[in-house]
Design a protein around this nucleic acid. Structure first.
Length: 489
RNA sequence: CGGGGUGUGGCUCAGCCCGGUUAGAGCGCUUGGUUCGGGACCAAGAGGUCGGAGGUUCGAAUCCUCUCACCCCGACCA
């Protein structure tokens, strides 16, 4: 191969960076901390959007759009919310430029905004301020709205997809008449995320609730799905927050109940971002390049003809035409790569690097034999298949690849997940990476101490699995159940 | 915000320490030809104010000062 990636075993972080650039997913823009998502990366995001959007609609949500700018005073209304985001906000102070003989153009000092505008780091405040006008009666509830948007968080250090100053995401913001209903919504959307991660991304996740210190700024409870990357580090892949009545209080959002009494509204918010693309890369890909689960691959089947001339190329096209039609009729995206400027070997490497789940190669020998060569990206295995019912076989193969990727990721996670019972054992084990299930006394002090001494954080208190009580590995005090520790992205 | 590093054709880099013809290489690109079952080959071409500003010098990619940008590693975070 001409363009070798850094090997994962050699330098995992470098491998990731190389892969994002070489698979043509994204690049650094000239703007610090911001990326350009290139067509191939964006196509993956579009597939994610499309699947998620369908799941949101199926659970009764509708899309809307709120402003990019948030008046500074709005952000300040919910105390813990502003505290959480204050350090990473971009602020608009002026609304006009003017030409300048020395600098070409300068900010017009006469165009200072009365009230500065914050570029949204998240939209709770502007949305709840708007909801005040929309919600008057219990009949207006629940209000189930999602928006697809960009947000800005001025991060000190950025990594393509995983953490950038500007990123794309969706944020659901719902309003409910009762606490129970809002809590159910929070859990429902967590389940949607978990199902998306596992069924579409082929990434097994642990559903859990965050500790107080890891909670979203302004939430009563933050639920999350946590995934394990190939280097054993944890990645938070989605969050769903039960916001209680905090934002209703801050923005005075009341409704009249059936008894004609005024009540504060209950809220949730939930989001996933382009970070999921990073999760996808780090879960499945290998030293040859990107590996994509078929359900999210922009090109599911890449067909490479092997032809000596235009006549042969034409013949191969005709040979495959019925199969291509049959595949497309099944909703499978097929690219017949008849570019005669590139050699087959180059194309093989290219589709491998870009993660096409299935590659079909067809040459004159195949046409004589009534066969094709089918290669699967996940295992790199090649096999010769008869043309008969090829579309069905490929469809099944794609399903098998989807399933295999999930099983492989699950097996890896299980291999790197273990219970530890003493702090000494913990300290040794954390160096090897992975998830550690340990007892914790529930205090922020112990949590902080562990973080400072080992760089591991509590990823979540899992909602499913072992709930046997025990004794905290650090203090020996009682623990309700084991929690998940890991070093995280 | 600390520590480290890098800015030289589209890309990856050499040259800098020790200043001296016309700034090189590989890849990519253009044209023509031969090729095509795992990143082809031959030939001919195009493409660079060496990140920017100032200085030293007869002479600066190279030395000095300032500056800008980006990357990597930490601290903080989805």
């Amino acid at each position: 191969m001409a363009d070798q990636l850094t090997k994962r075993t050699q330098d995992y972080a470098q491998w990731y960076n190389d892969l994002v650039l070489k698979a043509d997913l994204a690049e650094h823009s000239d703007v610090r901390g911001c990326m350009v998502i290139k067509p191939h990366g964006y196509a993956i995001w579009e597939k994610m959007q499309s699947a998620l959007d369908g799941m949101f609609k199926a659970t009764g949500h509708v899309n809307a759009y709120f402003p990019l700018f948030i008046p500074k005073s709005y952000l300040a209304k919910e105390a813990s919310h502003v505290e959480g985001f204050a350090k990473e906000c971009a602020v608009v102070t002026h609304y006009r430029l003017k030409s300048d003989p020395v600098h070409g153009v300068i900010v017009d000092p006469d165009a200072k905004l009365e009230e500065e505008l914050i570029i949204r780091p998240t939209s709770e405040t502007i949305i709840w301020n708007t909801y005040r006008g929309w919600i008057k009666s219990y009949r207006d509830l629940p209000l189930l709205i999602n928006q697809w948007a960009n947000v800005v968080r001025w991060e000190m250090r950025t990594r393509l997809f995983l953490r950038t100053a500007e990123f794309l995401w969706q944020e659901g913001h719902t309003a409910h008449a009762t606490k129970q209903e809002a809590e159910e919504e929070t859990r429902r959307m967590l389940d949607v995320y978990a199902r998306f991660a596992e069924e579409w991304m082929a990434i097994p996740v642990i559903k859990g609730v965050k500790t107080a210190s890891e909670r979203f700024a302004g939430a009563e409870d933050t639920y999350c799905i946590e995934a394990m990357m190939q280097d054993g580090k944890a990645l938070q892949a989605g969050t769903s927050h039960f916001l209680g009545q905090n934002f209703a209080k801050a923005f005075d959002v009341m409704f009249t109940n059936k008894e004609n009494k005024q009540e504060l509204v209950w809220a949730t918010s939930w989001g996933v971002s382009t970070r999921l693309v990073g999760a996808l890369i780090m879960t499945h890909s290998d030293d040859n390049g990107l590996v994509l689960p078929p359900k999210l691959a922009p090109i599911q089947v890449a067909i490479v003809p092997i032809a000596k001339n235009g006549e042969q190329l034409m013949a191969i096209g005709e040979y495959l035409e019925p199969t291509i039609q049959a595949l497309r009729a099944k909703g499978i995206s097929v690219k017949f790569d008849n570019d005669d400027q590139k050699k087959p070997g180059w194309k093989f490497a290219e589709y491998e690097l870009k993660g096409a789940p299935v590659r079909i190669a067809v040459g004159p020998r195949d046409m004589e034999n009534g066969t094709v060569e089918v290669a699967r990206r996940d295992t790199l295995e090649k096999q010769v298949m008869q043309m008969t019912d090829l579309a069905e076989k490929v469809e099944h193969l794609l399903q098998a690849i989807q399933e295999n990727l999930f099983q492989k990721a699950l097996a890896m996670r299980e291999r790197f997940t273990r219970a530890v019972n003493s702090y000494d054992e913990f300290k040794t084990a954390i160096e090897e990476g992975g998830f550690l299930l340990a007892h914790w006394d529930g205090t922020a002090e112990t949590e902080t101490r562990i973080k400072e001494e080992t760089k591991a954080t509590i990823r979540c208190i899992p909602l499913e699995g072992d709930t046997t009580p025990g004794a905290c590995m650090v203090t020996g005090r009682p623990s309700k159940q084991r929690v998940v520790f890991a070093r995280a992205y």
